[in-house]
């Protein structure tokens, strides 16, 4: 059969195949290079002192414990606020909304929101939240709530769609009211979507920097959760940016260590997302 293919065609096929394999290899290679490079450079300067102290200009040491805590606080605070909002919106869209036009408007708004660059969120967050509460983690978290609303809403919506209509009809048939159906039948069915949305959002919050620069500030003070929310603080990404531009010795190493930590967390989050997806797929197949 091969004899019927002209050499021109064979060249084209070979070229295209080569380009495809090359591109895929390049993509993988880039990912591997980034992991390898960042981990190699970062792990060597990772010390217990670095991750367990706060920076001190007196002793000229750098510690990133406050930045780690701030990242945790901001993730928790953002998720606490964005979950009810996003899941509620998704429930409205799939369970309550009667007007097609309103659904289209809300979905269009969510799409628009997810296309807006983070620096613009940061600016508006600065105008709206940082001007009311002052520069603090809470202002940063509220900004991130707006940013992550579309993600949570969409994942919740996707999994609500997988709850079979027959279950709802069964519950209605037994005489349950709408709210009761939502509470007892629909919501338990979309736990997987909510968890996936949480993981995705946690990843985005962890990686966000431009939106936090002008809303959450750059302080490196050790705080508890509630006092932390009320005071300015740098997250890991913001701290990385600050240390990368700081000339003092050890700052570059610190920023690479933070990069390595962020890289490991990214890997962990991706892994968790895959695991959760697989777990729920298996369960729903039962």
């Amino acid at each position: 059969m091969n004899t019927t293919i002209s050499s021109g065609r064979r060249f084209y096929i070979g070229l295209m195949k080569g380009l495809m394999v090359l591109s895929a290899a390049l993509t993988c290679g880039l990912a591997l290079f980034l992991i390898g490079f960042v981990l190699c450079k970062g792990v060597s300067s990772l010390t217990w002192e670095l991750v367990s102290t706060k920076p001190s200009y007196l002793n000229d040491t750098i510690g990133i414990l406050p930045d780690i805590l701030n990242t945790v606080y901001i993730i928790v605070a953002t998720l606490l606020i964005v979950l009810p909002l996003g899941v509620g919106a998704a429930i409205y869209l799939t369970e309550y909304a009667a007007s097609k036009r309103l659904v289209a408007v809300i979905e269009y708004a969510a799409e628009t929101l997810s296309g807006i660059p983070s620096i613009i969120f940061g600016l508006v967050g600065m105008l709206v939240f940082a001007n009311t509460f002052g520069k603090c983690l809470l202002a940063g978290a509220l900004t991130l709530v707006i940013m992550n609303l579309p993600t949570v809403m969409r994942t919740a919506q996707e999994s609500l769609k997988t709850v079979p209509t027959s279950l709802r009809e069964g519950a209605f048939g037994l005489g349950a009211g709408k709210w009761r159906v939502v509470r007892t039948v629909v919501l338990p069915g979309c736990v997987d979507g909510i968890i996936t949305g949480c993981i995705l959002s946690a990843g985005r919050i962890m990686g966000e920097s431009a939106a936090l620069l002008f809303t959450a500030g750059f302080a490196h003070a050790l705080n508890g959760f509630f006092s932390g929310l009320g005071s300015p603080g740098a997250t890991l990404t913001v701290a990385l940016y600050l240390y990368a531009n700081e000339p003092r010795p050890g700052a570059k190493e610190a920023s690479f260590t933070i990069a390595a930590i962020l890289m490991l967390l990214t890997l962990a989050i991706n892994f968790a997302a895959v695991l959760v997806g697989r777990y729920f797929k298996k369960r729903s197949a039962l």
């Binding site: 880039l30 990912a31 980034l34 920097s209 990069a259």
Partner: peptide, 27 residues
């Protein structure tokens, strides 16, 4: 191969932009 490349792609998507900036700055 597909699942390997796809996880590389989602890793690239998950890396924070400051990390890209840092590697760019130093490499």
């Amino acid at each position: 191969v597909k699942s390997v490349v796809e996880s590389a792609v989602s890793l690239l998507a998950g890396i924070p932009s400051v990390v890209y900036g840092l590697v760019g700055m130093l490499v």
